[in-house]
Amino acid sequence: MFWVDDVPAGGEVVLDGPEGRHAADVRRARPGEVVLLGDGAGTRARAEVVDVAKGRVTATVLERRHDEEPALRVVLAQALVKGDRGELAVETATEAGVDAVLPWRAERSVARWDEGPRGEKALARWRTTAREAAKQARRARVPEVAAPVTTRQLADRGAAMLVLEATAAETLAGVPLPGEGELVLVVGPEGGVTDDERAVLAGAGAREVRMGPDVVRTSTAAAVALGALGARTARWG
């Protein structure tokens, strides 16, 4: 998959810049080869390479399609975690089909993403991770990674919400799910969700669910949950 700003209905399209360099100089695309193009907003195309120059590939569109968003959009509220585990969470969730990501400033998050260059750099890494993971998975859409949110901002979204909690009585396999709209999947930090946070989210209608008998790490919990949601809803249909 190569990203382009716009996928034309037909004719020629030029890959240049970073994507052109990757196609021409790293992947070594050749005339006659068929490549997949996407704009990250739902439109993809199969295109035949007709010319290759240094850092530049020209291709002719063979087939173009647009995928509508799923009726039920799953938004991941991922607690900020230290090191590269947050990026791993975004990567695996993107591969599993998440529609958007909300970096969550949970009380027990070790990482803080303070305002300023350091926070902006961390957010940029999450966004780049989502874009690259969507590319590798050949997804039609790149999940939006929004600015960090607080617990109160999560509660105020007014959406259906599931909080992953290992001690919950309800299971993800059995909890009722909406058929459309937005479903927020909340994944806490390594220290867990605090009682105060649970109370705020519960006050907004959130339900706590567990995925199984074992504890799943924060870096992979969303991907596991998304798999279950894909099987239980029409998202994989």
Rank of each mutant, 00 (worst) to 15 (best):
V149T: 01
A204W: 08
G158V: 05
E197C: 11
Q136I: 05
V215W: 05
G191S: 02
R217M: 13
A221P: 12
P176M: 02
A122N: 03
K135D: 00
T129P: 07
P143V: 01
G158S: 06
L201F: 02
A221G: 12
G191I: 05
M161N: 03
E180M: 04
R210S: 13
T218A: 15
A169T: 15
A160K: 10
Q136G: 07
R125F: 02
A147K: 14
T150L: 01
G174T: 14
M161P: 01
G119F: 12
D114Q: 11
V145N: 13
G174V: 12
K135F: 00
A159R: 10
A206N: 05
R139H: 03
P143L: 02
V200R: 12
E120I: 03
E208T: 14
E182G: 01
V193F: 10
R118P: 09
A160E: 15
M211F: 11
G158Y: 03
A137H: 10
G192M: 08
E208G: 14
L154W: 10
R198I: 00
D114R: 11
T129N: 05
V145E: 11
L201V: 04
E182F: 03
R141M: 09
A140N: 03
L154C: 11
A199C: 02
A168Y: 09
T150F: 02
E115C: 06
L164I: 00
V215Q: 06
R127K: 14
A130K: 08
A133T: 05
A122I: 00
L201I: 03
A155Y: 07
E190W: 13
E190G: 12
S219K: 01
V163A: 02
G212H: 06
P143Q: 00
L162Q: 13
V215Y: 05
E120T: 07
A146N: 04
A173C: 03
R131A: 12
E170K: 14
A168T: 09
T128L: 13
E182Q: 07
R118Q: 15
T218L: 07
G205M: 08
L164F: 02
V163I: 04
A221D: 12
E182D: 08
G192K: 06
L177N: 03
A199N: 00
A166C: 08
P189Y: 10
D214H: 15
V186M: 03
M211P: 10
R217L: 14
E170V: 08
T150R: 03
P189T: 12
D195S: 11
A134M: 09
V145R: 13
A134R: 08
P117A: 15
G119Q: 14
E144T: 14
V187S: 00
A155G: 07
A134P: 09
E208Q: 15
R125Y: 04
L154K: 10
V216Y: 02
G116C: 02
